[in-house]
Amino acid sequence: MQNIWVLVEHAEQGATSMSLELLTKARDLADKVEAFAWGPDTASLASELGLYGASKVYDAGDIGDALPGAPVASAIARQLAELAASPDAPEALLIGTSYDGRDIAGRLSAKIDRPVITNVVDLVVEDGELHALHAIFGGAQTATSRFTGAETSPAIFVVRAKSFAADQATTPVSCEVVPAPPGELDATNAARTIARHVEQQSGPKLDEAAVVVSGGRGLQQKENYSMIEELATALGGAPGASRAIVDAGWVPYSYQIGQTGKIVKPTLYIACGISGATQHMVGMKGAKNIVAINKDREAPIFSIADLGIVGDVQKVMPKLIDLLKSRGG
C-alpha cells in the first residue's frame, strides 16, 4: 500500500486514543500515512501526529456549531477530487467507530458513491489490497471482507476502538498542516449545536478503563444499578451495561457494551446479572480476565468466565463492595 488516510478526532488533550490506534495500524500497512482532521486548532495536533508517523494533516478547519458529518465529509470529498489521479490520492481511509466518525463515513460514502465496510476489528494486506475482519455471531466467527469492482477507491473502513495498540513511530516525522476547507455547503449542513450538557463523570472512560463492571437484567430493577457504579468505583473502573437494560432505559446508550455498543478489552471484566447473549459477548470477550455472577448455572456467560459465581447478584455484590471498601480500595 502506498498511502492511507486516517480520520483524526480531537479530544480535550490532543488526538483521541482511537485516532492514534488507527495511525499506528496505517503505518504497518502503508508507506505513507496522512491524517484528516477538523477543529479550531488542528495545528496543535501536528507534532503528536508526526510522532505517530503522519507526514501531513489535512485540516477541514473550524466548523463552529455545525455537526461534523456534512462539513468534514465535504472537505474530504473535495480533497479527494483534487487529488484524483495524483500519486498523493489515498488508497484507503480509516475512520474510528465514534458518534461523529460514523456520521462522516456515511456522508462521505453517499457523497462519492463508495461502499463502506464497518465494525472492522483487523486489517490485512492480501495481494496488494486491504481485507477487513469483523466479528459475527457474537464473536464466535470472524468474517473477512474485501471491496470488489472498479469504483471502490478509496476503500473506506470504519474500525472499532481498541482493535490495535497505539505506538509511536521509531522515527518521528514532521507533519505538515494543509488547509482543506469544506467549500460551499448546502441544506445537509443545517443542524446546529445550541447547547452542550456534560454530566458529571468520575473515573476512567468505559473503553479505556482497566476494570469494567457491567450490569444486566439480573439486577432486577433500575435502582440496583447503583451497585454496579459502586463496585466500579471501588476498583477504579468504569460501569457498563448489557443491551437489555439500555433498551429498558435504565442507563444511557454510551454505557452499552456489545455488538451494537462498545467493544471493551479491560484487564478485568465483571459481568453482574448478565446471561451472556451473543450480542453482549462480542463486546467483552477480549477482556484479559472475566468474572461472572449469575443465578442461572446454564447462563452462556459462564462458558467464557475465568471465575464464575452461581449466585444472586443482590446478595453477592453488597458483600463484595463492603469487603473491598474495608480493605481501603
Partner: peptide, 30 residues
C-alpha cells in the same frame, strides 16, 4: 461492491472455575 471472502471460527475462550455461592462468593472474588 464488497464481498465476504472467508469465515473462520474465532479462538475459543476456555471456561474457568465455576462455584456456587455459599455466602462466601465475595471472598472468593477478592
Amino acid at each position: 461492491r464488497q464481498e465476504v471472502v472467508a469465515v473462520a471460527a474465532a479462538p475459543e475462550r476456555e471456561a474457568g472455575e465455576i462455584i456456587e455461592d455459599e455466602g462466601d462468593a465475595h471472598e472468593r472474588i477478592v
